[in-house]
Amino acid sequence: MAKTIILEVARYRPEQEAEPTFESFDVPLNDDWVVLDALNYIKDKLDGSLSYRWSCRMGVCGSCGMMVNGEPKLTCATFLTAYDPGPIRVEPLRYFPIVRDLVVEITDFMKKLKAVKPWIVREEEKPIAEGEYLQSPEQLESYKQFSMCINCLCCYAACPVVGLDQHFIGPAAIALAQRYNNDSRDQGAEERLDVLSQHEGIWGCTFNGECTRVCPKNVDPAGAIQQYKIKAMTEWYKSLIMPWGKKSNGK
């Protein structure tokens, strides 16, 4: 008989139970299977009522973030064999309200993300006739790492501050703000600084570094936040020394 591994999957069926429970499933331990494959196997063959999010199964869409043995992971990139002989405990992302089984409620994050304006802000768009906005490889390099974020929310599930203070805007949102601040085409740094220089913005961060450790795309949100702190501090000193000066746009 082929080798199998036990998956202990968190179940929460709000119409039946008041709090989550665990259900064990025996799934084939194939070398090329990731945790997401095992969940799909459960849904197809063992229990069709299991709910979870997934889409691309190749580390791009950011939907399948879950806790695997207590660590936030992209389940599409987490091989079963790494946990042999098991069992593997699969839970919904920590610190988020659970909607059902492995599905969490992320509206709050979407709202926080929007607050930092994660798009290119221009004071004035140049006419199309003038052509595109050019960018050198160095300019691209300065924000590329932060642009790799796929909003999988593993960093939120890793960050103790997110767990303790639900107002904290969180690692991914700040890293994405920094992605646009560092973009040579963007002029919105000042608007973002107004949101992020508040206590619930960058100053909520205690530089625990967990976000960077768990990030499946090596975005380094912790680095982004600390760089932002230095930036905010310099801006503040500048406004103190030269209150008459025009606030720079953060370039």
Partner: peptide, 12 residues
């Protein structure tokens, strides 16, 4: 926060 506090169905 954007989600409803004490939402009866979500587990927190």
């Amino acid at each position: 926060p954007a989600y409803t506090l004490y939402h009866p169905k979500w587990y927190r």
